[in-house]
């Protein structure tokens, strides 16, 4: 096979600058060397690499060289291609450390299991000529949940009574999606606010990135539950309510009731879990669910099924969700 990409690019993309045409790549082992202008040839299809993707963390761009944005030459469709990369690293959750692993095989398995289920990103796995596990993903055109929330300029009270009920209903759907994984003995592994996308065209909430996994523990699903709890606190509070923000409130003329360490989130002592203390109109039943993720709590949800059951009870009973119940009868 011709190892230069000139001819194939000339055929499908005649305007592509010839000087940028790279190689045709069939062995993706050395993913660092695959760059703009290279064409990855997998399972009879050509994918032009247009860029390496990055992850947004703490305002910084963290390049992920094993994740390429590509154009499928035969169809013109944009794809994300994740190349095989195994790594392990320590993650800190509050004061605790745990070893996290990146596993392409795990992500492939979940992609196959959730095929056609739009609550999850979609894609397929192919093996390159060296047997590397390559995932070819459909791009979700949408926005991360935290960015959507951040763009809202209204007051919390207005948010809580207008936007939040629909978001809460969508969140229940997203939590049920995770319950579905657990029911099938899989875990998401990296539940974060920016791994839940709101698709622009459908407004569906969709989970992305399933390649993280953790070592042995008594409850293999607890970290997913922890991630869901963190997203709930974000949703109820409209944004993250930090100890620093609370200090400002405390010094203002109209202070909120005294906030103690027990009001903060378990394992994240800088975040408020007792959101009712900042926004007193939060109903008790909803705040009680938030308090399950607080430092005060000593009885935790034992499963996502138990968590979703509490959310659904709230949705069905609280007046704030009355109109949303009509719009989301499936909840």
């Amino acid at each position: 096979m011709d190892t230069r990409a000139y001819d194939i690019l000339a055929e499908y993309l005649p305007d592509f600058p010839r000087r940028h045409a790279g190689r045709i790549v069939t062995d993706t082992t050395d993913f660092m060397s695959i760059d703009y202008g290279d064409v990855i040839f997998l399972d009879g299809i050509h994918y032009l690499v247009t860029k390496n993707l990055s992850e947004r963390r703490f305002g910084l761009e963290d390049p992920k060289y094993w994740v390429k944005r590509c154009k499928e030459l035969e169809t013109g469709i944009q794809r994300i291609i994740k190349l095989e990369f195994y790594e392990s690293f320590e993650v800190s959750i509050g004061k605790l450390n745990s070893t996290c692993y990146r596993s392409p095989r795990k992500e492939s398995r979940i992609l196959a299991m959730t095929e056609g289920d739009k609550r999850f990103m979609q894609g397929r796995t192919v093996m390159d000529e060296m047997g590397n596990c390559v995932r070819i993903l459909d791009i979700i055109y949408g926005t991360e949940l935290d960015i959507v929330l951040d763009r809202l300029t209204m007051s919390h009270e207005e948010y809580f009574n207008t936007v939040f009920p629909d978001y809460f209903a969508q969140f229940i759907g997203a939590v049920r999606a995770i319950e579905h994984l657990h029911h099938n003995h899989e875990q998401h592994g990296d539940i974060r606010r920016d791994h839940l996308l709101i698709e622009s065209s459908t407004r569906d909430w969709r989970w992305i990135d399933f390649d993280y996994t953790f070592g042995l523990r008594e409850n293999p699903f607890a970290l997913d539950l922890f991630g869901l709890g963190s997203i709930l606190l974000l949703l109820v509070g409209q944004r993250e309510i930090t100890a620093q923000q609370l200090a400002v409130v405390k010094n203002s003329p109209v202070g909120s009731p005294a906030i103690t360490k027990e009001d903060m989130a378990l394992a994240m002592p800088y975040r408020l879990a007792n959101i009712q203390k900042k926004y007193p109109y939060i109903p008790d039943a909803l705040n009680n669910i938030c308090m399950h993720f607080s430092a005060k709590n000593s009885v935790f949800y034992s499963s996502v099924a138990e968590f979703v059951s509490a959310l659904v009870t709230c949705f069905n009973e609280l007046p704030v969700f009355k109109a949303a119940r009509g719009r989301y009868p499936e909840v």
Partner: peptide, 15 residues
């Protein structure tokens, strides 16, 4: 184990 560890990783004796 601490409450945080129990929450994040689970505990056989507590279960």
């Amino acid at each position: 184990i601490s409450k945080e560890e129990e929450f994040l990783f689970g505990s056989v004796s507590v279960d």
